[in-house]
């Protein structure tokens, strides 16, 4: 079963993402939540393994970019063979922000507001559906 971690300080955005996932082809995925990058990174360093991380950018304590850099550094330090796929979901839609995210290890990028269809299509890019 696929597993997805949702990292966003907005509880309603986490709810919307969960609603979209649970009503689509990834309905059986196991979902984990974190309200900021700091807690999410603690989860990863504590051994939590997920297939995909959906992360906001602007969050208190630790933003999404710092979080992704932390994840990639942890993967490099521990010799992870299959890096987790990261989708950034954010209001930051400028080219320099998207470029910075990609350079930091983000695999896909969704600009808010978004639809269930956009989320599903983006998930399919990084997490092929198992038949």
């Amino acid at each position: 079963m696929a597993s997805i971690m949702i990292v966003d300080d907005s509880s309603v955005t986490r709810k919307v993402i969960k609603k979209h996932i649970k009503s689509g082809p990834y309905a059986s995925a196991e979902l984990v939540e974190a309200p900021n990058g700091e807690q999410a990174l603690e989860n990863v360093k504590g051994g939590l393994k997920v297939d995909v991380i959906l992360s906001d950018w602007n969050m208190p304590k630790m933003n999404g970019l710092e979080f992704v850099r932390g994840v990639r550094a942890h993967e490099a330090a521990t010799g992870v063979e299959t890096p987790v796929k990261v989708i950034m979901i954010t209001t930051e839609g400028t080219i320099d922000k998207v470029t910075a995210a990609m350079e930091s290890g983000v695999n896909e990028y969704i600009v808010k507001p978004f639809t269930a269809d956009t989320l599903t299509k983006t998930l399919k890019k990084v997490l092929p559906l198992r038949v």
Partner: peptide, 12 residues
């Protein structure tokens, strides 16, 4: 989240 998204759109 509404004002956050609107502000993000204006910023872009």
């Amino acid at each position: 989240e509404m004002i956050n998204i609107v502000a993000g759109g204006v910023k872009t």
